[in-house]
Design a binder for these strands. Structure first.
Length: 209
DNA sequence: CACCAGGAATGTA
DNA sequence: TACATTCATGGT
């Protein structure tokens, strides 16, 4: 079982190749995108990001300084704009008050994770996405597809977020680059696996499970 | 038309 | 602790 996750990772990487995540130019953009993509298709997030860019709002400093209404208008295509606009303000203010990436990078991963989770609008998956893709920390991001992948194949008994996260972190080399690629492969390619019974027939994983 | 997408907060039992 | 509901747009 210790090697099972690594075998799955190698299979996916071999089949689909590197995914080049996170698709963003700056760390600020990763943080902003992590909020915008909550339960939202990435194509819609791209439209919101484009709007933010045109308004010069694609940075945490700019968001902290701008009014709420202009943020709402810009991110409308990403949905839930009433909530997400406030969430963006919350995390932008958090970065301002804590010295930005330079200061926050000094913190150890557990401390930083707890800090992020105190922000209203930042749940476990969003916090871990930020830790992994903006801070290069070896934290495994557990999303809907990851849960489904594990539960469908009964690779773990515990299905709550923390146990699944630790399941990955304890059964893989603790390498943020591996976690980065693994999560990306699951979301971009493996999400269709074992979704409905007909799709299980061409599930690439059945040859190693 | 229904369903889903790179979730989280809130309320209920 | 474990579910149910709400939030909103755009693609299929």
């Amino acid at each position: 079982m210790k090697e099972m996750l690594l075998k799955i990772f190698n299979l996916l990487l071999d089949r689909y190749g590197p995914q080049h995540w996170w698709p963003a130019k700056t760390k600020d953009e990763v943080v902003i995108g992590a909020i915008l993509t909550q339960n939202t298709a990435w194509t819609n997030v791209e439209k919101a990001i484009k709007n933010l860019t045109q308004k010069n709002l694609l940075s945490l400093n700019a968001i902290a300084a701008s009014n709420l209404q202009s943020i709402k208008e810009a991110i409308k295509p990403a949905g839930f704009f009433n909530q997400k606009s406030v969430y963006l303000k919350n995390i932008a203010e958090f970065f301002m008050q804590n010295g930005g990436f330079e200061q926050l990078s000094q913190l150890d991963t557990e401390t930083l994770r707890k800090q992020l989770l105190t922000i209203k609008g930042i749940g476990k998956e969003t916090a871990d996405s930020i830790l992994l893709y903006a801070f290069d920390r070896a934290v495994f991001v557990v999303d809907t597809y990851t849960k489904r992948l594990i539960l469908r194949h009964k690779l773990s008994g515990q299905s709550d977020y923390e146990n699944l996260r630790l399941f990955f972190e304890n059964n893989l080399p603790k390498d943020y680059r591996l976690f980065n690629e693994f999560h990306a492969l699951i979301v971009k390619n493996a999400k269709e696996f074992c979704r409905k019974k007909p799709l299980c027939d061409n599930c690439p994983l059945k040859e190693i499970l």
